[in-house]
Amino acid sequence: MMELRDICREYKVGTELVRALDHVDLTIKAGEYVSIMGPSGSGKSTLLNMLGLLDRPTAGTYRLEGEDVSSLDDDALARHRQQQIGFIFQFFHLVPRLTALENVELPLVLAGAAPKARRERAVSILESMGLKTRLDHRPDQLSGGERQRVAIGRAIVMRPRFLLADEPTGNLDSRSGSEIMQIIEQLNRDGIALLIVTHDPMIGGRARRHLTLRDGKIVSDRSGEGA
């Protein structure tokens, strides 16, 4: 469970103080499927980074699975990200010199897992996403959809409870985009909580819960319809 209480995040841009998140209260339960929408600059990416422990609040408390993580140091945050959170990015962020398999293995390598075990796990994940013949391809030899599937593999290889996706289809054609949505929605049905930041209403509409942000505030939080 993710619980934000009275969270603020302020930036200084030149001499101006910008409040990207303005006293946000939000609770995400295990297994939820949430879309976060809003105009540019509304703070939706900042909210996702905050939930993903990449960013720290300037005020308020954040409890992740009951633990207060608002004031943890960098390494403690890294450990939580490693164990509980998977990220998917618009621009994939694969390491260009590593093969698909090595990219998926990377979180396990950082965690110090044994070579044989981590290889088996990475291979089975890639196979389940239809990339059996692409294991030894480097990112520049893969299509956009394939790259994002590798990135998803990397995000779930540590078996996190939360999957955070920032415009996951923003850089894909509509067919690849819908394939990617099917894959991550299947992961959600298997129990992982899914949070998607998007400006595409078609994508956002598929979620079971819809958050809308404007000027750093949650202006709407509706449940219903969707997948």
């Binding site: 890294a78 450990r79 990200r81 490693q82 990220f87 962020h93 990377l106 979180p107 950082l110 540590m158």
Partner: peptide, 16 residues
């Protein structure tokens, strides 16, 4: 830079 950010996102410690 982007790669270092990615490493941090997937749990790399500063020491690593």
């Amino acid at each position: 830079t982007a790669e270092i950010g990615l490493l941090k996102a997937i749990g790399a410690r500063q020491r690593q």
